[in-house]
């Protein structure tokens, strides 16, 4: 695909712009900004990736992964409901997930230790973990706020903080991981996954594309469960003090930015 053909594909941006203008939908500005940003960001990433692939040096791969973790942390703590000291809990979670997944992939020689594999797979894993963190934090904080009386009841009867948050924690872990599990049940029936479609369009063998897609799906299952459990178990102790008192004020307000 050339830049000329990509230019022609801007018709697909013009259509919503014209419709928005005609029907007064007010989407013109956002559509234009989104289009320009996506062009600049993706082309820049394309060149950066080309440089990293050509350089064939581990330091660039590590820098890329650090950048991804920093961006994911920034986004998750901005979009998700927060609790005190969440930034380092998110960073730790993303690092553990990255190390775990890459250790299995490279250790068992499932994928080679090259930038071509490590970077896109890390992007998918960290990106998925970021979305899961946002889902989990929003759910967990609202559960804790809604069930504050139950939390106090359990504490008042001599329960520990771990016992008091057990139900909200479990239901938040379930709520944030169920979409990942459910989407895997219908995958391929309704729509072909993006990565697999991209590979097929780029000329890859469809069976190879399917095998890689399955690998990613399995990775995302691990990512989903580990993210929720780690964020949950790292977060709940900050909601209590050493006298086992529930510090509701540490559930900071949901940020809308």
């Amino acid at each position: 695909m050339s830049f000329l053909t990509l230019g022609i594909s801007l018709i697909f941006v013009l259509i919503p712009l014209i419709l928005s203008k005609t029907l007064n939908l007010g989407l013109e500005k956002d559509t234009a900004v989104a289009t320009i940003r996506s062009i600049i960001q993706l082309i820049a990433v394309g060149y950066v990736l080309q440089f990293v692939f050509d350089a064939e040096h581990m330091i660039y791969i590590i820098l890329m992964v650090i950048l991804m973790i920093a961006a994911a942390t920034h986004n998750a703590q901005k979009k998700g409901a927060s609790i005190k000291g969440i930034i380092w809990k998110l960073v730790l979670t993303f690092i553990v997930i990255e190390i775990l997944t890459q250790a299995i992939l490279i250790g068992f020689q499932i994928t080679p230790p090259t930038a071509q594999y490590i970077i896109p797979i890390s992007g998918m894993v960290i990106g998925n973990s970021m979305v899961l963190s946002i889902l989990f934090l929003n759910r967990f904080t609202s559960e804790m706020e809604e069930k504050d009386k139950e939390t106090e009841l359990i504490l008042s009867l001599g329960g520990t903080p771990k016992q008091a948050i057990h139900k909200p924690l479990i239901s938040s872990i379930q709520a944030s991981t169920i979409p990942t599990i459910e989407s895997q049940k219908t995958i391929g029936l309704v729509q072909l996954p993006g990565m697999m479609s991209g590979q097929i369009i780029a000329g890859a063998d469809p069976v190879q594309a399917v095998l890689f897609q399955l690998l990613i799906l399995f990775l995302l299952l691990t990512t989903a469960v580990i993210t929720s459990i780690m964020i949950g178990y790292l977060s709940y102790p900050t909601l209590f003090n050493e006298r086992m008192q529930f510090l509701k004020e540490r559930l900071t307000e949901k940020k809308n930015s």
Binding site: K149, E150, I154, L155, L157, K167, R243, Q245
Partner: peptide, 30 residues
Amino acid sequence: EPVNLRRNVGYALQDATMTAGSVRENLALP
């Protein structure tokens, strides 16, 4: 210890909060 204190000083909350489940499960909760 907080846990021992709370077992020793029983507190029946104003709104008689119940957890999801049967009367037996609630009674046995402590």
